[in-house]
Nucleic acid binder design. Sequence first.
DNA 1: TTGTAGGCGTTATCAA
DNA 2: TTGATAACGCCTACAA
Lengths: 343, 343
Amino acid sequence: MRRKITLKDIARELEVSISTVSKALKNSEEIGRDTKEKVQAFAKLYNYKPNNIAISLKNKYTKNIGVIIPDIVHHFFTTVFRGIEKYANSKGYNVIICVSDESFDKEVINMELLANGSIDGFIMSLSAETEEKNDFSHLIEVTNQGIPLVLFDRVTDVINCDKVILNDKEISFSVVQKFIQSGRKNIALVTTDNYFNVSKKRMEGYKSALEHNGIPLNENRILTLPYHDEIEDTQITDFFNSNEIDAVLCVNEIFAIRCMRVVQKMGIKIPEDISFVGFTNGMLSRYASPKLSSIAQHGDKMGEIAAQMLIEKIEREYIEEEDEAYRTEVIEGTLIERESTIN
Amino acid sequence: MRRKITLKDIARELEVSISTVSKALKNSEEIGRDTKEKVQAFAKLYNYKPNNIAISLKNKYTKNIGVIIPDIVHHFFTTVFRGIEKYANSKGYNVIICVSDESFDKEVINMELLANGSIDGFIMSLSAETEEKNDFSHLIEVTNQGIPLVLFDRVTDVINCDKVILNDKEISFSVVQKFIQSGRKNIALVTTDNYFNVSKKRMEGYKSALEHNGIPLNENRILTLPYHDEIEDTQITDFFNSNEIDAVLCVNEIFAIRCMRVVQKMGIKIPEDISFVGFTNGMLSRYASPKLSSIAQHGDKMGEIAAQMLIEKIEREYIEEEDEAYRTEVIEGTLIERESTIN
DNA sequence: TTGTAGGCGTTATCAA
DNA sequence: TTGATAACGCCTACAA
């Protein structure tokens, strides 16, 4: 078991000083050709690679980015993560990922842990519990320490930092608008009880589109389902039984798929009798029958932009100091029309 | 912007030595009560937290685990990852994740990067290209350096290390066996052209079950599809048109869903006329219609066990040295019967 | 052209 | 009871 070799080892072996070795490996002009060659050859032979930790300690940066997301088994977060990872890697950064599991405490713990020198900056999406508690002291703490932070998707106005979000309200508006233009009048919204910020915006879009078209809001046409699974279909069945509905906007694709199944069992035809659109353009949408028209949130792009914003902040740190200007980047969702809507 | 405070800062402020502060914060018996209280109060006030990097440098461990997987937008890997993350976290480890994107080069680069001190051990699943090239020198290099390694799912016999795998062959065997017992005779296998090791095992199980039941192997009943999407359905349509098939085993759920759609369009009834079973018990299986019977690979458990094996090796390092005993843990897949099979 | 010394933040050993 | 010193691995200003 050949242990990792250090500058010191090389120096000892070649009977030169450590700094000579260090300089030689950096091809410094100060060092004589012979010595350089000797050192470089030796280093190559023994596969010398500088120790990341030592460099981090010396240079005060780690080339690591901390990502904290509520859930990893989730198509949207997963695509965002891919975007982050890709961009970060191309810039020489590694990604340390922590899953908050929608828990406030885990979010705080993970954040504090990473903040103690392990990373140069954070990218995160708030846990449901954090949104609920409305307690962001851990974020404040971290930004106070001068650690750059980028929030995406589940963000909050309370914190002043870079953000990447979807145009949730506008895209919802335009989907409902589209429903109306294609002759639908009884439009339902299926939403979730947490996810506050995002869901709220989507609902705003829904409501404002109705209003815009002079359609009175009917609260009965809004179905609120628990975010975490394992409910029976009865709630859904009741909903569609007691309401006459010809179009549905769902805040995620799982809700959409479930509703479609229920409705199909009731003998209602999609999209002839009822149209469906869901957020999250994932696997389920693509492979449902009928294929679900859905709103692509462009997670990859969100991730890439988030990473870009973060790395920019990290690397700018040197230059300026206190004239922080924060941006909020808005990604435009795209309605991917498939079989669950009419044109 | 209050910068992170260090031992040195506290020492200067309180006019004691650094080592006194260090000891006081560790509640060392050597330090007088007064000093301890003073130091601890000050540290709390300024929210002192030791710097992870410095500790890593000193102690030669990082409390980081490196995970390298081929793809993050993939239900199975994602569940394994969740298992790893959960266990690792509970043991005080963070997880650095790198995605090889099925590329040999990215796998090598990521691995080398992390191996230079950033992590205490690796958990990984081989990229398709690596399996294809059959080149594992980067793994050998890493294990030679004494860095513990655990492989899961996509493993290789070439490398001597801990492994966690599914009983791919056996579970395939038993599914086909079940098909036969329920009266099916013309059983197809839909597989992929890479993924070598795992697919191969699954095919072995398929073939051996046929043989076991005296059913001659018909190579025409094996459909090989490209792993990376975006093929037309024609290939699948042709396959089912030119073969009389009454049961299908698919190596993943996407293939299964696609085949089911094709078959349904042809007017064939599932499961009356034809049964389907797919590997990967993901979202698609659960929400397909009919719901797909599928083989749960227990990713969470695989991840947890992998993390457990790894951390054990990492922390044992001190004790013994060279009598390395490597284990291969076999996880038993479970057939989840839903609507696409008859009982 | 090469080497010495100090420092990044922490801990451990030994001395005072 | 407290402090000085060295060390982890690397880098760099400065000295030789």
